Amino acid sequence: MELNNLTGFLVHRTDVKMTNFFTKILKQYEVTPEQWGIINVLDAERATSQKELAEAIDRDQTTVVRMIYSLEKKEIVRRIQNDFDKRSHNLFLSDKGMSLKTKLLPIVTAAHDHVTKNLSKDELQQLHELLSKLYSSVKEE
């Protein structure tokens, strides 16, 4: 079978190029695409647990803890011990984090629009549906 006919290869190749593109866009803000995912999920007003965050960005909790620590050092994320469960922490964006989120949102939106410019709205919706089906096939593997 030819490599370009393998769905996994095509998805991976696209993911690598898109990740590189977004990395380049976000570099000047000293944020990685993975960190942007966390910033995008978190809010200054609503507490999010590490477990909820890990589920939202589809990463294991150990990886998320390291990412949170990095964002905490940059003063983008605040981690506050949960009053009801001392082993758990509530996560919030700091004022600096909210400012960064506000600044990055139009930049990330423009980058998304750029990489999807050759797709119609229907094609983009169909792509999302197809990728969700592929993801469901391997989610528990």
Rank of each mutant, 00 (worst) to 15 (best):
N4C: 07
Q50N: 12
V138C: 07
W36A: 03
F84L: 08
M67E: 03
P106H: 04
D122S: 08
T102E: 01
V31M: 06
L105A: 12
Q125M: 09
E30D: 12
F9W: 12
Q125P: 03
Q81C: 06
F84P: 03
R66K: 09
M1G: 13
F21Y: 12
D58Q: 11
L131E: 05
E141I: 11
E55M: 06
V41N: 05
R46E: 06
A44M: 10
E75V: 04
L100H: 02
S132C: 11
L104H: 01
E2M: 13
S99T: 14
Q28K: 13
T62H: 14
T19N: 14
K24V: 02
K101D: 09
Q81A: 07
F9I: 11
Y29S: 01
I57R: 00
D83E: 14
D58L: 11
R66G: 02
I80A: 15
L134H: 06
D83H: 15
H128N: 08
L6M: 14
N4L: 14
I57Q: 02
S49I: 01
E141L: 12
V65C: 12
A56V: 03
V64T: 06
L42M: 01
E30M: 07
K74C: 00
H112V: 10
A56E: 07
F21S: 03
H112T: 14
E140L: 13
L130T: 08
D58C: 13
V138R: 06
F22P: 04
T116K: 01
L131H: 01
S132F: 07
S88R: 15
G37W: 02
T32K: 02
P106V: 05
D60V: 13
L6Q: 11
K117Y: 10
H12W: 13
T62Y: 12
N20M: 08
L3A: 06
R13I: 08
K139M: 09
K73V: 07
L124D: 10
M1H: 10
N4Q: 13
D95K: 05
T32S: 07
T62E: 02
E52D: 11
T32E: 00
V31A: 03
M1F: 11
G97R: 04
R66D: 04
F84E: 08
K74N: 03
D43P: 05
L71K: 04
M18N: 11
T62N: 10
V138W: 11
Q81D: 06
L71P: 01
D122W: 05
E2C: 10
L10Y: 06
L3W: 06
L127A: 12
L119Y: 15
T109P: 00
I25Y: 01
D85W: 00
I25T: 08
Q50V: 15
T14C: 09
L93I: 04
S99N: 10
H89R: 14
L131K: 00
Q35E: 11
H112R: 15
A44D: 01
S94T: 10
K101E: 09
L3T: 10
